[in-house]
């Protein structure tokens, strides 16, 4: 039965990474490198516990977590799209604001800088034991998982359908692919980017709620511990394609679960935990390298034609 509990912990670990990865993927398709997923997750995690503690309702806590994360995403959208702040810098600002803000709230309202641990906390809906006994292997591993784990796996086809099968998804991708062309075609690029950020906030808020609400029922500063960045790594590793991103997220969740097991055995887990980040760098390098090889003949004709496609997001930081 050991493998079933391991599979269950892989699913549990994958869930926030998957949501974070999808959050980063949606914005990546709108040509935004979203480094703020981590911060939005943290806000979601904190809001979930704070509201659940105050209201005693799990549904309300989850809803507020989502709203709070979306508000953060729209703050980022406002600063970047309306006031032309740099996406990376403002995104890192969101992360700092989330970390600082939640710590400030802990210190000031709850007088406990170490964390917020409600004595009683409403439970999320979990798949009841025995409900999936007809499903071999996967069934027992899914039993006892929270509704958010289920939602995170449903979010993959949802994102796929949204991006590839709806007009809005087309517009969103067009805005990311070529802003000028999209604008000429009458697409409101800024609105599409703001929408991408809002969806990103929704998914990140869900990820944060999963981290704090599912089993732990408490909030700690820096609780998200880089999982937003693992999600970003998963997306970059798979080039922003939904199914590949989901597969990478599960793979990284597997690394995470493996790292936990190794820690228990007193084997240094750090090297296993490094794998997602190494994979992201190697995956990206490999993708660029293939492009490089393919473009070689063209490069002889037009030596400087291959500028970076993703370079536009920092055009405004050039020294004035």
């Amino acid at each position: 039965m050991a493998y079933i509990s391991f599979l269950a912990s892989v699913l549990e670990q994958s869930s926030p990474i998957m949501l974070a990865a999808l959050a980063a993927m949606i914005t990546l398709r709108a040509n935004i490198l979203n480094v703020a997923v981590e911060g939005m997750m943290l806000v979601g995690a904190f809001t979930a516990i704070a509201v659940g503690n105050a209201s005693g309702s799990a549904a309300l806590a989850l809803l507020c977590a989502l709203v709070a994360a979306i508000v953060m995403s729209q703050l980022l959208a406002l600063m970047t799209l309306r006031f032309s702040a740099d996406f990376i810098v403002a995104g890192l600002g969101i992360n700092l604001l989330a970390a600082g803000g939640s710590l400030f709230a802990l210190e000031w309202f709850y007088r406990s800088p170490g964390g917020l641990r409600p004595i009683t906390f409403p439970d999320l809906w979990h798949i009841p034991a025995g409900a999936l006994s007809w499903l071999p292997v996967l069934g027992p591993a899914l039993e006892g998982q929270s509704i958010i784990v289920v939602l995170s796996f449903l979010a993959v086809p949802a994102c796929f359908v949204f991006l590839y099968k709806t007009p809005t998804g087309y517009y969103l991708r067009a805005s990311g692919e070529d802003e000028h062309a999209a604008r000429s075609a009458g697409i409101d690029v800024a609105r599409m980017k703001a929408l991408a950020l809002a969806i990103s906030g929704l998914l990140a808020g869900l990820a944060g709620a999963q981290i704090s609400m599912d089993k732990l029922h408490f909030f700690l500063p820096e609780m998200t511990s880089g999982r937003g960045f693992i999600g970003l790594a998963a997306t970059l590793f798979s080039g922003g394609l939904p199914w590949t991103t989901a597969a990478a997220a599960v793979l990284f969740g597997f690394f995470g679960a493996l790292g936990d097991r190794l820690q228990a055995l007193d084997i240094p887990s750090q090297f296993v935990l490094m794998l997602p980040y190494l994979a992201a760098i190697l995956g990206l390098t490999f993708a660029r390298w293939r492009l490089h090889i393919r473009n070689r003949p063209a490069r002889i004709l037009k030596p400087q034609a291959t500028s970076e496609p993703s370079g536009s997001h920092r055009a405004d930081l050039e020294p004035s």
């Binding site: 600063m79 006031f83 969101i94 710590l103 000031w108 405004d316």
Partner: peptide
């Protein structure tokens, strides 16, 4: 006054820093 006020302010500053009015 909690010292994390500075973390909060840093976040705000970084968020606002590259913005143009």
């Amino acid at each position: 006054v909690p010292r994390s006020l500075v973390d909060l302010l840093t976040g705000l500053l970084v968020l606002l820093m590259t913005a143009r009015l």
